[in-house]
């Protein structure tokens, strides 16, 4: 690790001020992406602003028809939350599928969404559920938030404070894990609100998480796994690596979408 200055603010305002005063400062959330990268000296931020002690970024509430999760809420907290289980049970289940137990004790929803790893699980849920990413500066709709591999609409110094998930009629997530990393080789999240459906795919797309609109159309007409029969995903837009070539990933999108619908009920 390269040396850095360390700050442990107690409030979002203090954190924002620190970030504003130092253009090279990096936010540390749960640390499970940033720290391994720094350990291998693939990243060398000069300043770290650790959000771990900002109490206002934690917590889970149901607010009207929305489930609101603080950015520094860990995956384990989401997985174990009665509020989440009551509102969107399969979102809690998704949280149990991230990394491993130890990772879930530290990794946070805000960190995962901000990092937008193309194989992370949460971005699929955020996109399928049409969630709103709330920052210290504004609210960003999911469709406007994810901008490609490791890229988001967040500006320098902007801090995700919470995520607001409209509570859907149905939600499901199915993941096929990459055997080594346990990240999603393909993960598909499906949501139904009223009669409209949203389908978001992680792990597979060469531009990161994306919506599978043909599947959304089919599920909008009839919410069942069978409705997805014969709907192909363009292999040309899939990633390819030793764990899965683009044809395999495109195929798995179909398989996982059906399983996600079945899980959603």
């Amino acid at each position: 690790m390269y040396a850095f200055q360390y700050h442990r603010p107690q409030s979002v305002a203090d954190a924002a001020a620190l970030l504003a005063s130092d253009s090279e400062a990096k936010i540390l959330a749960g640390g499970h992406t940033l720290l391994p990268t720094m350990k291998q000296r693939l990243a060398g931020p000069k300043t770290i602003v650790d959000l771990g002690h900002v109490a206002e970024l934690k917590g889970i509430t149901k607010s009207g028809n929305a489930l609101v999760i603080g950015a520094m809420t860990t995956h384990a907290e989401v997985a174990g939350s009665e509020v989440v289980r009551g509102a969107i049970p399969n979102l809690a289940r998704l949280a149990t599928m991230i990394g491993d137990a130890h990772v879930r004790h530290r990794g946070t929803i805000g960190g995962s969404v901000a990092n937008n790893d193309p194989a992370a699980d949460y971005p699929a849920a955020v996109l399928a559920l049409n969630a709103t990413v709330v920052t210290n500066k504004r609210e960003i709709k999911a469709d406007d938030f994810f901008k490609g591999l490791f890229s988001t609409a967040l500006q320098d110094g902007e801090i995700i404070t919470r995520l607001s998930f409209p509570i859907p009629g149905k939600f499901g997530y199915a993941k096929f894990a990459q055997p080594a990393s346990l990240f999603a080789l393909v993960g598909v999240a499906v949501a139904q609100t009223g009669s409209s459906a949203r389908v978001a795919v992680t792990g597979a797309g060469s531009s990161g998480v994306f919506r599978q609109t043909a599947m959304e159309g089919a599920l909008g007409k009839g919410w069942s796994a069978q409705s997805l029969a014969g709907i192909a995903t363009d292999a040309g837009k899939m990633m390819s690596d030793i764990h899965g070539d683009s044809a395999y990933r495109a195929h798995l999108v179909g398989v996982m979408a059906k399983r996600a619908v079945a899980q959603a009920g």
């Binding site: 360390y6 442990r8 540390l28 640390g31 499970h32 720290l35 391994p36 350990k39 291998q40 770290i48 650790d50 771990g52 384990a76 491993d100 137990a101 130890h102 990772v103 004790h105 530290r106 990393s181």
Partner: peptide, 26 residues
């Protein structure tokens, strides 16, 4: 060095964490 093997697991406030992926300062 990729937070995978779990040889470094300790309990932090009663929960298992990978101590190789946590800053002591945090």
């Amino acid at each position: 060095d990729t937070s995978q093997c779990g040889a470094c697991v300790v309990h932090l406030d009663g929960r298992a964490v990978k101590s190789c992926t946590v800053l002591a300062a945090s």
